[in-house]
Amino acid sequence: MTRLYRRQSGMSGRRRPGPAMMGFRRRAEERFFKALMIVSTGIVMGSLLLIVGTIIVKGLPALNLDMITKTPQGGFYLGKEGGILNAILGSLYLAGGATLLALVLSLPLALFLDLEARTRTGAAARLRFALDVLWGIPSIVYGAFGFVLMALVGLRTSLLAGIIVVALLELPIMTRAMDEVLRLVPDSLKDASASLGATRLETSLRVVLRQCLPGLLTAVLIAFGRGVGDAASVLFTAGFTDNLPTSLFQPAATLPLAIFFQLGTPFPEVRARAYASAAVLTLVILIVSLAARWLSRKLGKHTLS
């Protein structure tokens, strides 16, 4: 506090300009930086609009019913008939399975964080730290790790391998998002439950979980969105195929890779389909994100606090 004061007085004492002139300079500086900030915020917001706008405008004209209801036919990647149903379904199966698997691990972890937070051991802090570090691992590294795992157990590129790796990728995202939600539950509610004779487990399962249900669903949807959109981790593990996924042990196509492969061809028709596929992926992600936001707003309405 004293340092702050000295700093301020030192500033005005340096050159001793007249009060009116100093006021002008300081006001000009204030205005200049405020304008700079507004421009910066505009750039950030504008880039989202620009990206989504470009993809939709470029993609929608190439989008038709065949694209989303048919699998690739012969010569699809040369510009012939077909669609990307294989990739759409593959992505949904893959992200769905991965999200379920991640949920099975995330929910107990998040509850553990919630329980331990009150007992002041370092366990919760350690787990949060590990999750944050895990979150920082790039998805291509998960993919490479998946490849090593597959070689170890003798699994080939398959839906199952993809599900496992994407579940690992989603785990920290989902757990941390759930953790944030569980933190909002007031302690008084847990105390009330405990005073009625409930054990900690019963309080967690019947009071805390029920209170947080919409928020937890939001966490699940956020993780699902990440799973659908990730490409680098499934490159090694899920493979790619033109067929619809029929078994966990078959390779499965995914939407991001379908976009990537179509964009890699030199044919304008196929590239146009890549834009259309990107529009489909963007719409799926936007719908999932908006649903997540809508649910978390609903959560706000019912939270006791």
């Binding site: 950030v44 917001m45 880039s47 989202l48 620009l50 990206i51 989504v52 470009t54 993809i55 956020i222 969105g225 990440r226 659908v228 959109g229 990730d230 490409a231 680098a232 991001p256 976009i259 990537f260 964009l263 890549a274 834009y275 990107a278 992926l281 963007t282 992600i285 936007l286 999932v288 994100s289 936001r293």
Partner: peptide
């Protein structure tokens, strides 16, 4: 907006 931006898949960024 920032949350939405963080959810956009990297392939979409690539296409853009």
């Amino acid at each position: 907006f920032v949350d939405l931006l963080s959810g956009i898949p990297s392939v979409v960024f690539g296409v853009w």
